[in-house]
Amino acid sequence: MELERAVMKIGIIGAGQIGGNLTRRLTALGHEVSVANSRGPHTLTELAKETGATPVPVQEAARGAEMVVVTIPLKAIPDLPSGLFAEAADGVAVIDTGNYYPQQRDGRIAAIEDEGLTESRWTEQHLGHPVIKAFNGTYAQDILDRHRPAGTPDRQALPVAGDDAAAKSKVRALIDELGFDTVDAGGLDDSWRQQPDTPVYGLREGVEAVTKALAEASPERTPEFSA
């Protein structure tokens, strides 16, 4: 007999491809999802109708949430309201799916370029709350199409980095529920190993290949992903 899954209250900030597809899958799994974007709840009517998620203003997305997914362009992180997690559940886990695309979208971020901060460490500092880096190198469509039951030979693995062991465990459990294996990619200062243009970024493989790809990463930014 399959054990009944615990229903979680999950906030999603950003309703683009990753945010939209996580909303679809998480509601399908029975979780209570609130979703927000920069344009306001009235622009999320169709997604809400499709999924049963609740559209909310950004400042309410984390209210009562046990987990919050922040999936917006890096350049928009500083524009998020302060005190975003003030009304979240105790021990809320925050997932950062973001990537730094200086030439393509975000412009130059000095702390990343000059101080060597990882993208997620920079995000964490702006949010004022620990983050777990996950889904940043995942194709959005794979969230809908490539999930598999545990133990399936072709089950895809996702790297997960972060410093908060309890939050990381919670995030890895959710990813398993979504139908993917995980690999512990270390602390947030190690999360450069899964940033854009690393071997694991966009890799559609299992645990062994993901582990190998993380080990082979270089901390040097390639010219395409530098300002």
Rank of each mutant, 00 (worst) to 15 (best):
N99K: 04
I112C: 00
L84K: 06
K133R: 07
D190Y: 04
V35Q: 13
P55T: 07
L3Q: 14
A213T: 01
I143C: 05
H129Q: 09
E66N: 09
E46G: 12
G83Q: 10
A157N: 01
G98A: 09
E177Q: 13
R172E: 12
I109D: 05
L158Q: 06
S34F: 15
P153E: 10
I18D: 12
G151Y: 01
I13W: 03
R121T: 05
L203V: 09
T71F: 09
F180G: 03
P73S: 04
V210L: 10
D181Y: 09
P55D: 04
I109T: 05
P199C: 00
E115W: 07
D197S: 07
V131N: 01
Q156K: 08
P196T: 02
P55F: 03
T45A: 12
P219H: 05
P196Y: 03
S169R: 12
D142L: 14
R121E: 10
S34V: 14
T198I: 01
E2Y: 12
P55Q: 06
V33S: 15
V35E: 06
A93W: 10
A110R: 04
V33L: 10
H129N: 02
N37K: 09
P57N: 15
G186F: 02
A48R: 06
Q17N: 15
V171F: 08
A215V: 00
F225M: 08
H126L: 06
K9T: 12
K212S: 08
L74R: 00
G91W: 05
D197N: 11
L84H: 06
H126T: 02
F135C: 12
G116E: 05
A110D: 10
T123W: 06
A15E: 14
A166I: 14
E220D: 11
I72N: 11
A157R: 03
A150H: 01
L3T: 14
E208V: 05
P102C: 08
G206D: 13
A217V: 00
T152C: 04
I95W: 07
L158R: 03
H147Q: 10
D154F: 08
I112N: 01
T138R: 11
I18A: 06
L188T: 13
A93H: 12
L203A: 02
H147G: 14
E205P: 04
G107I: 09
I72G: 07
R108V: 08
R193V: 00
I143V: 15
L178N: 12
A161F: 00
E224K: 03
P41V: 08
E87M: 11
I143S: 09
L144H: 12
A110P: 04
A76Q: 13
S120Y: 01
V171D: 10
I12V: 13
Q141T: 15
V183T: 04
L174P: 06
I143H: 07
E205T: 11
R63D: 15
E87F: 08
P223H: 03
D142M: 15
R204K: 14
W122S: 00
A217Y: 01
S120V: 02
Y101S: 04
